[in-house]
Design a binder for these strands. Structure first.
Length: 201
DNA sequence: CCCTGATTCGC
DNA sequence: GCGAATCAGG
């Protein structure tokens, strides 16, 4: 695996975005192991995982950590948490899809698609409120807008590149109706849980 | 059973 | 340095 700056940037971006390792792996066409491994090597912040590896089969335990006298190490850093996994289970799609946009609420929506956060970030970057003055008539078009798209055809929002870098962009291809991604990317994004397991290529 | 992420260890 | 294998918790 050739970890170019580009790839690493993407990994970082997606990682920071809160995607699962498997998700990231899927997007980069690598295994989740690779993602996790690299992430660790890069020193990326470990993401919420309840797993704790205490029992070291081989490595001997180390001495106790000396109790710090002053625990007043005030850390201004606020634990930034993704709050919610934008994607809990973006999968489950079989063959059928809901032609009706207003499908009944599903406990596990198969249509859950990760990655909207990126757009928000980008939007912020693009349109930073420079001054306190707000433009009442500013053509602000947030992605959350009720109906921002009237004429602009939808485009695949598969992230290409590192959000925040000049080269970053979205796929832009014509997405499958009812899906945020184009055919090509939807296939990767909506892999069935059973089928994917590992490896993508 | 399925998912998830973390660490270990051979390469 | 890399990632599959393995471990481990939900």
């Amino acid at each position: 695996m050739e970890w170019t700056e580009e790839i690493i940037a993407q990994l970082k971006a997606l990682w920071a975005e809160g995607l699962s390792t498997a998700e990231i792996g899927r997007r980069l066409s690598i295994t989740k192991n690779a993602v996790v491994g690299k992430a660790h090597r890069l020193g990326l912040p470990a993401r919420p995982s309840p797993i704790r590896r205490n029992a070291k089969p081989k490595t001997a335990e180390k001495a106790e950590a000396p109790a710090a006298t002053s625990s007043a190490a005030a850390q201004t850093a606020t634990p930034v948490q993704p709050a919610k996994q934008a994607e809990a289970a973006p999968v489950g799609e079989t063959e059928k899809h809901q032609p009706t946009p207003s499908a009944p609420a599903r406990s596990t929506p198969p249509e859950a698609a990760p990655a909207p956060a990126v757009e928000e970030k980008v939007a912020k970057k693009e349109k930073p409120a420079a001054s306190s003055k707000s433009k009442p008539k500013a053509p602000l078009r947030s992605i959350s807008d009720p109906e921002p798209q009237k004429r602009r055809g939808p485009s695949c929002c598969w992230p290409i590149g590192d959000p925040g870098t000049p080269g970053f962009h979205f796929c832009g291809a014509t997405p499958i109706p009812g899906k945020p991604y184009c055919e090509e990317h939807a296939q990767i994004a909506y892999v069935r849980l059973r089928d994917r397991r590992d490896n993508v290529a």
